[in-house]
């Protein structure tokens, strides 16, 4: 059931990150003293993609589809069950935590919730300086604080905010602190896990613009995990759609939004309301029936088949592989 590596055919520059057949299964255990696994939650079940230098790959899907777990596996916060994660030619799965440390400087993360991802007892300055201290990059405390002020300014905050605590700041300001912390180690690659989802629209637009500016300024590569497709369309070069632990479609951003192939992608795009009553009331809505099945006992064959309008007999038994329907456009469906 290995999924063909979709990016192999289209790589022009060497990819910064290669994910091959990534699987992460969480055991469900029973018993008090002797714990034995009775089932597995297949959070990620065979996902492959490449991310090129300087590009932003969007990873979209609904809750429980495995997009956050994929991000955590790349960060090695969760060790993958199977598969390879090759960052700049080095397979991260082979490394122990000591050997990972220098690579961790190069891969950073911005979390979703700006309220719970900052330590409420630390000052903003200390939150941003901590990674620099931990990795021993700048032993001098004074110089560290200079760097912190510089980072705050880069992220559009007043350098004086270094002396404040997180509770004194608004959601948008906290998210900027999260971004400054991610930048503090000069990373190559940042995973944005729903980085703008918790923010109000007017603030969200500010943070999206900041992320774009920083990408150009520091030559960053992003993996942008989100469920809001309109934000993904604005920010990403390529987009991968996940459903129940599998990748169902991968294409260039414009191609995916203009010409979605997989029935799930089509339904997902149709479900997003457009902020214009004239267009919104005129267009056709394809409302998906049913709910996302449990990843503990996913449907056999194509995981989307119980909700799929195109499903045929074969979909219940055969797992569709990602295939290239157009150069650079990969779809895991036999019926398109």
């Amino acid at each position: 059931m290995s999924v063909a590596a979709p990016a192999e055919a289209q790589v022009s520059a060497a990819p910064l990150l290669q994910v091959r057949n990534l699987k992460k299964h969480f055991p469900i255990t029973e018993g008090i003293l002797i714990q034995k696994a009775v089932a597995h939650v297949k959070a990620v079940d065979g996902v492959s993609f490449d991310i090129r230098r300087g590009e932003t790959l969007g990873l979209v899907g609904e809750s429980g589809c495995g997009k956050t777990t994929t991000g955590r596996c790349i960060l090695q916060l969760d060790r993958p069950t199977e598969g390879e994660i090759v960052f700049d030619g080095i397979n991260l799965n082979d490394l122990d935590s000591r050997a990972l440390s220098p690579l961790r400087q190069r891969i950073q993360v911005i979390f979703q919730d700006p309220y719970s991802s900052l330590n409420p007892r630390m000052k903003i300055g200390d939150i941003i300086a901590e990674p620099i201290y931990v990795h021993g990059l700048e032993p001098d405390a004074q110089k560290r604080m200079d760097r912190v002020r510089e980072l705050l300014a880069v992220c559009g905050l007043n350098p004086k905010m270094a002396d404040r605590y997180p509770h004194e700041m608004s959601g948008g300001q906290r998210q900027r602190v999260g971004i400054a912390r991610a930048l503090s180690l000069n990373p190559d690659f940042i995973i944005c896990d729903e980085a703008v989802s918790a923010l109000d629209v007017s603030i969200q637009a500010q943070v999206i613009n900041l992320l774009e500016e920083l990408r150009e300024k520091f030559d960053l590569t992003y993996l942008f995990i989100a469920h809001d497709l309109s934000v993904v369309r604005h920010l990403c070069h390529r987009v991968a759609v996940m459903y129940l632990g599998r990748m169902v479609e991968l294409a260039d951003c414009d191609e995916l939004f203009d010409n979605p192939q997989h029935p799930y992608t089509q339904a997902l795009l149709s479900a997003i309301p457009v902020p214009d009553p004239d267009i919104e009331r005129a267009r056709e809505h394809r409302v998906l029936k049913g709910e996302v099945p449990s990843p503990i006992n996913p449907p056999s064959g194509c995981v989307f088949n119980p909700r799929c309008p195109l499903a045929v007999e074969g979909c219940r038994s055969d797992i569709p592989e990602l295939r290239e329907v157009k150069p650079g456009h990969w779809v895991a469906c036999t019926e398109v």
Partner: peptide, 14 residues
């Protein structure tokens, strides 16, 4: 808000 129905903009207008 980024719009799905319009061409992509370079910058959002927050």
């Amino acid at each position: 808000v980024p719009r799905m129905d319009l061409p992509r903009k370079d910058k959002l207008d927050p």
